[in-house]
Design a protein around this nucleic acid. Structure first.
Lengths: 347, 347
DNA sequence: CATTAAACTGTGATCGTTCACGGGATTCTA
DNA sequence: TAGAATCCCGTGAACGATCACAGTTTAATG
């Protein structure tokens, strides 16, 4: 019966209650719970019946205190209003659940500096056995401070970040992806290719810009700062970006937008300006969000699989933790996933 | 120095180590940690220095065992590749962090039935003090089972769900929002208004359909099943939806798409079919995703604030838990947030 | 100066579980 | 039939903190 959420504040049913009811010791109940062999079938059945009758649920907290392993991974993420981070988080969650890990979620807001200390402290307090740093950018010094705090307690995996030597970073090849996109524009005969970047303090945004430069340089095409506008991932910034770009670089005949949302903004602005895509202007995006196939016109874009990256991160973490429990030293091995181009009608 | 993530497996620094170093009892250290008054300034300083020198981090796990309060809320969510759930989760996280709660995240995949039992068990095992059920739909019977398991341990808040009497549900007024959208189309002179719904087993999708019916009925306009297509929230389904709609109801002069992504699909299909929006066809969406202002044409849509809803949910949970700690019974009070219409050029 | 209150600090039990160890009953081997 | 081996089960300590209670010193009061 619905009771409006009134909780009876009864004491929690413990292993002791089960033991009493089954007429055995707590240790025997513990053995049943953990599938240890040294229990006769008869007592095992009795204990299991008591467990069911009392609706007993073991306490992971008490267990992790004594076993010194919590079964919890910490995830530091942010910006899941964006497609990438959301997919990443989904992949992490899926794999974690499959391998039996719980997830403690923190959202890092890169604004305040001492917040990272608080996050580290909170994760350590919760006895997380591993930390997955998903997406939020870290300056080198902050990263060092964070690692110094956390790493004596738990290994860390960094995702989509700059890889300093020795870092455990998993990522997609942003630079390659951008190069593929721009090379494609060049193949289609475009010669004056601008870029709208993400926030350039972000490593991934910076890498995509480098990929754009790579492609232009090796084709001997113009590559100046006049062709660059820094956006903020939002469609609106893509819209503004195109206007500015055309103003400061009128010969523009193609744009590489560093994500699909900004590409949408570019398409929008082009439409407003009376430019026909792709005749007057080619546009390529990055991310391959599901909607990009329904843009007007459908967007050529770079596909990458962040769901898989998230899964991979958890698997790596799992491997390392398991190995260490067995006493062997183990480190996360860095890895880069290759993106590929999806050609549609905007180019 | 980067060391590839090698963890020194030293014993954790405990309150006892701090006590020894500061030359006081563990109780005194505990008092310092919890800001209890009965400590002289001199000892307090000595203890704090010891804490700093040893890099001591208290164990939330040990603490929650004895205090019987974990400081952890469980969140069951899914589908954060969509704008709504992502905003909801972001709001929940923000408010939780502000109020000092940790978040245990589970993603519910509505496919398997016994998974709900596992989720409930996991949450109880982790001693969560409250559960926020964010978005994933529950059948009445599954809900009952879940509540029966969890509610003796922790209060539950349901978000965006059907409210059975007595349920603690927070939501936005989906039905009203849809009615606003359709009434607007009627005001603009449209008479043959179709709808592309979300999956109709979802309460929110069903409510939006009812809102559409409300508006048509009170205006005395046609309202038949021929005007209805069931989508799946994706842009692609909106695209297909419009084609089918026109086929089975050729007089169509406006479409209410139950989210912005499907509205994008509608715009796309209209463009392909040579229809000009809004001249030949008016389109209204639902959600007001940031991109919708950059659709072609910019989308008229229903704005609602799921971030605020998430914050609210945590605040309610907080209130209830605090009250119960103080021994007073308290229940979550149901609440509905009003959405409003954003008029742009697609209508 | 004795008495009482206030300020400060320590002791042992406790939360719910597993770990290390020990011991009795049963079966097997010589 | 004695000895060892196997199976089964229980006892006390431990994990890292807080709680309830008690004790000791210092300051305030009559």
């Amino acid at each position: 019966m619905p009771n409006g959420g009134v909780v009876k504040s009864t004491r929690r049913v413990t292993i002791r209650d089960v033991a009493r009811r089954a007429g055995v010791s707590v240790q025997t109940v513990s053995r049943v719970l953990n599938d240890h062999p040294d229990v006769s079938d008869a007592t095992r059945a009795r204990v299991q019946r008591a467990i069911a009758e009392l609706h007993y649920q073991p306490s992971a907290i008490a267990r992790s205190l004594i076993t010194r392993s919590s079964g919890v991974l910490g995830v530091v993420a942010s910006g899941f209003q964006f497609f990438g981070p959301a997919r990443l988080l989904a992949g992490i969650e899926r794999q974690a659940t499959e391998l039996g890990w719980q997830l403690m979620l923190r959202v890092a807001d890169p604004s305040t500096p001492e917040e990272y200390d608080r996050i580290a402290a909170a994760l350590i307090a919760q006895h997380v056995e591993g930390v997955i740093w998903a997406y939020p950018e870290l300056s080198s010094e902050r990263e060092r401070a964070f690692r110094a705090q956390v790493e004596t307690h738990a290994p860390i995996v960094f995702l989509s970040m700059e890889a300093n030597p020795g870092d455990a970073v998993l990522s997609i090849e942003n630079r390659l992806g951008a190069r593929l996109a721009v090379e494609h524009l060049i193949e289609r005969g475009r010669r004056h290719i601008g870029i709208i970047t993400g926030p350039l303090n972000l490593w991934s945004a910076h890498q995509r810009k480098l990929g754009w430069q790579d492609a232009l340089a090796s084709a001997g095409l113009p590559c100046t700062e006049l062709q660059v506008i820094e956006g903020d991932w939002s469609a609106e910034s893509g819209c503004r970006g195109l206007r500015q770009l055309i103003e400061q670089y009128p010969r523009l005949d193609a744009v590489f937008a560093s994500n699909d949302q900004m590409a949408l903004g570019v398409l929008h602005a082009a439409h407003q300006l009376g430019l026909t895509v792709p005749r007057d202007l080619s546009v390529v995006g990055f991310d391959n969000v599901p909607e990009s196939a329904c843009f007007i016109p459908p967007l050529t874009t770079v596909h990458h699989d962040l769901f898989a990256l998230g899964q991979l991160a958890v698997r790596e973490m799992h491997r390392v933790i398991q190995a260490r429990r067995a006493g062997k030293p183990a480190v996360v091995s860095p890895l880069m996933l290759r993106p590929h181009l999806i050609v549609r009608e905007s180019s």
